[in-house]
Amino acid sequence: MQFLDSLEPGEHATIVDFETEKLPLKLIEMGCLPGNKVCLLHRAPFNCPLYLEIDGCHMAIRREVASLIEIERP
């Protein structure tokens, strides 16, 4: 299984699933849903936080949260 924190800057993927219990609802509300496209735009120094584009919406999340989100590379 691959997770969102393994993406390299500029890389695209598709969200497959996430840990329902732990993932904050707010992230889902911002469009982090299975089936949506995700792209890692930038990583801050020391690899955290991550600047993502998910389904046209731009946001930054921390690595620990990204590691809860399962992705599939094209």
Partner: peptide
């Protein structure tokens, strides 16, 4: 509590 952090990056 696990820290979570979501911040919108507006245009």
């Amino acid at each position: 509590t696990k820290s979570y952090f979501v911040v919108e990056m507006p245009n």
